[in-house]
Design a protein around this nucleic acid. Structure first.
Length: 503
RNA sequence: CUCUACAUAGCUCAGUGGUAGAGCACCCGGCUCUUAACCGGGAGGACACAGGUUCGAGUCCUGUUGUGGAGACCA
């Protein structure tokens, strides 16, 4: 466990000891009252100078420019940075200049948390700053914080860019890269905006189990754990769909949950083993209603965040202006391959895949084959928000049969930037039909499809008591945040993305 | 899992087989309106790990570990 300390760490530990010898506690217990923030001062000082004769603020020391008997420094609090001015004879009015010469100049380091009291003024070159009259170390930093400098053109120098460093030591990333903090603040605003939208409709936010005896509601490999007292396996949820539907059976008209889901599969820039999906279920509605609801929700969230419906994403611009384009899955395939698959059986679909150079295997059923064609030939083309509707029944075991198109279900997926963002159904509420669909999944499983769903007998029991006609929708929160914050990796919208453990 | 790139000081990077380098940060000194502060001096390195080739390896080769990218997989 012992670790060789770097030169700079030794220096800081020595400073820590010297502070203690001077009777200064480097980790004081008492609260430090804060009366102002950096951003508020900079925004409001001019014209209200009298209100800033006495301020106290606290934060991390981010830079120092020492010029003998006077110094400038930068303090960063949650709102931003502000310049501090330290003058020896102001801080040390008496003969003893220790507080400035030793404590500030020698024993205080970049990265330390300090509290300052003083008044706000403008420097000769016009920067709003705090004239420090008293300062106090609130917490000593023992590791050198990487110093990031921004020049007058706003260009960042020596920023920490190593992704491994940034993700493993996210606290450092957040401390020194304000843009990173901004993305996560936006993430929370997006989620709050969604929540406000649902609450305004009177829908109920709920919590359902993460530990499930049967991993249902989606097709994915689960994480398995074990409950000692019950001596049974439990699965971390891959979805919460079946539980939310049980609540609709129970009489709630609208329920939603921000669900942390877990899938034991590969990781890449759009997949993390744990991720967040918002799922909502509304009784007496259908998937047409849900399309309108979804685009209204997204337009509102985007407006709340950006004040416009046109947002940049990489080198593209995405428009969230309603209404979104709507295309049936068969029309999408016809448009992008020139092939009409609407009347094909499984053998013809398999041949079509071969003709299109799409890899298939014997375990794939009709639904999976259609999905392969769509995924290979169509998906990437839908950059602007587009609802793909009316999927083949075989790939949607929880979705109601289409009211007028045999062999299809009332399902849509919302595609943005060539990726699936949301998925919704008119929910299957016929318990006999649902049991048959589950049984078809068992057949798929026996054919070798390791993603087919298990039968959840309790869920069927719930449907047998009766579930009202319901529409449900799930939206990938991490992917939505990626789009709305213009990030290309899921790791940049998760505070602590999954990494291989160190050492 | 496959292919590929990268791994050098606290951070960002250079180093093209021949004594380990720079900027920032750090230490010492100077400087009372600086702002990528400045000026002078200084210290700091098992070059990711383990082998190999070579008189000699940070550099070439093999393997390992970690990370990024591209794929496979993830409806």
């Amino acid at each position: 466990m012992s670790r060789e300390l770097s030169e700079q760490e030794v220096v800081r530990r020595n400073s820590l000891n010297q502070l203690r010898e001077l009777g200064i506690d480097p980790y004081p217990a008492a609260r430090f009252p804060v009366s102002a923030t950096a951003q508020a001062i900079k925004e409001n000082f001019e014209g209200h100078e009298d209100d800033y004769k006495q301020v106290s603020l606290a934060g991390r020391l981010m830079s120092r420019r020492i010029m003998g008997k006077a110094s400038f420094a930068e303090l960063m609090d949650h709102s931003g940075r502000i310049q501090l001015y330290f003058n020896r004879d102001e801080i040390c009015p008496d003969e003893d200049k220790t507080n400035y010469n030793t404590v500030f100049k020698k024993l205080t380091d970049i990265g330390d948390f300090i509290g300052v009291e003083g008044y706000v003024f403008k420097t000769k070159v016009g920067e709003i700053s705090v004239f420090v009259q008293k300062f106090q170390i609130l917490s000593k930093s023992l590791r050198p914080l990487p110093v990031v400098k921004t020049d007058e053109d706003g260009k960042v120098h020596d920023g920490v860019t190593d992704p491994e460093f940034r993700y493993r030591q996210r606290y450092v990333d957040l401390a020194i890269n304000p843009d990173v903090r901004k993305v996560f603040a936006q993430r929370t605003r997006i989620i709050n905006s969604m929540r406000d939208f649902f609450n305004a409709e009177g829908y109920l936010e709920v919590d359902t189990p993460v530990l499930q005896p049967i991993p249902g509601g989606a097709a994915a490999r689960p994480f398995v754990t074990h409950h000692n007292t019950l001596d049974v396996p439990f699965y971390l949820r891959i979805a919460n769909e079946l539980y939310l539907k049980r609540l609709i059976v129970g009489g709630f008209d609208g329920v939603y949950e921000f669900s942390r889901n877990f899938r034991n599969e590969g990781m890449d820039r759009t997949h993390n083993p744990e991720f967040t999906v918002m799922e909502i279920y509304v009784a007496y509605q259908d998937y047409d209603w849900m399309m309108n609801f979804t685009e209204a929700m997204l337009e509102k969230v985007v407006m709340d965040l950006h004040g416009t419906t046109e947002i940049p994403l990489g080198d593209k611009t995405i428009s969230f202006q309603r209404p979104f384009k709507r295309v049936t899955m068969y029309d999408a395939i016809l448009e992008h391959t020139g092939i009409d698959i609407s009347e094909m059986d499984e053998a013809q679909l398999r041949q079509t895949c071969k003709d299109l150079n799409i890899e298939v295997d014997e375990s794939m059923g009709k639904g999976k084959l259609v999905d392969e064609i769509f995924g290979e030939k169509c998906e990437a083309n839908y950059v602007q928000p587009t609802f793909i509707t009316d999927y083949p029944i075989e790939m949607s075991p929880l979705c109601k049969k289409h009211r007028s198109k045999p062999g299809l279900v009332e399902r849509f997926e919302l595609m943005i930037n060539g990726k699936e963002l949301a998925n919704a159904y008119s929910e299957l509420n016929d318990p006999i039909d649902q049991r048959e669909r589950f049984e078809e999944q068992v057949e798929l499983m026996e054919r070798g499809d390791d993603e087919a769903m298990y039968i959840d007998q309790d869920f069927l029991r719930a449907l047998e008591y009766g579930m009202p006609p319901t529409s449900g929708m799930g939206i990938g929160v991490d992917r939505l945040v990626m789009i709305l914050t213009n990030q290309s990796s899921i790791q940049d919208v998760l505070f602590f993305p999954q990494m291989r453990p160190e050492k």
